[in-house]
Design a protein around this nucleic acid. Structure first.
Length: 120
DNA sequence: TAGCTGACGCCCT
DNA sequence: CAGGGCGCCAGCT
C-alpha cells in the first residue's frame, strides 16, 4: 500500500514467495527449470528477478527447497555463489545425474521442466 | 520515508 | 551482434 500492489497479500492467496517455493518443490530430481518459467507460471512473467530473490531466501524456509534446480533461461548456474560454497549447486545437480560444464547445464532443453506445461 | 538493488528476461537502440 | 533500460516483488539502508 505504500508503493507496490501488495493487494494480493491476503488469506486466500499465498505470497508470491510461497508460491515460488511451492512450484520449486515440485521440480523432479534430475530436471531443471528457469526463474522466468516459474514467474510466468505464477502469472508474472516479468518477475523472474523476484524468483531469484526468493531462492536467495529459500534456506530460511522450514522445508527443503531444491533451489539448485532453478537456473537462468540459458541453463547457466547464475545462482551458484549463493550456496554454502560456490560448487555446491553443481554438485547437487550432478548427484541427480545432471551434467554441468562451465556452469552450464548439458542437454538443458531436454532436462528443462516447464511448470506451465507440466503442471496442469 | 524514499530509494536502491538483486540467483531475470524482454524490448529497444 | 552487443549493450542498455525497465518491470517485477521484497528487503535493506
Amino acid at each position: 500500500m505504500t508503493k507496490t500492489s501488495k493487494n494480493f497479500r491476503n488469506a486466500e492467496h499465498a505470497d508470491f514467495f510461497d508460491q515460488v517455493y511451492a512450484v520449486t518443490k515440485l521440480i523432479p530430481p534430475g530436471r531443471v527449470t528457469s526463474y522466468g518459467a516459474i514467474a510466468a507460471f505464477l502469472g508474472s512473467p516479468q518477475a523472474a528477478r523476484t524468483v531469484g530473490w526468493a531462492m536467495n531466501a529459500s534456506h530460511l524456509q522450514s522445508g527443503f527447497i531444491p533451489a539448485h534446480r532453478v537456473v537462468n533461461r540459458n541453463g547457466l548456474l547464475t545462482g551458484r555463489h549463493h550456496f554454502r560454497y560456490p560448487t555446491l549447486m553443481q554438485e547437487l545437480l550432478e548427484s541427480e545425474g545432471v551434467i554441468v560444464v562451465d556452469d552450464q547445464v548439458r542437454d538443458f532443453n531436454k532436462l528443462f521442466w516447464d511448470p506451465s506445461k507440466e503442471l496442469i
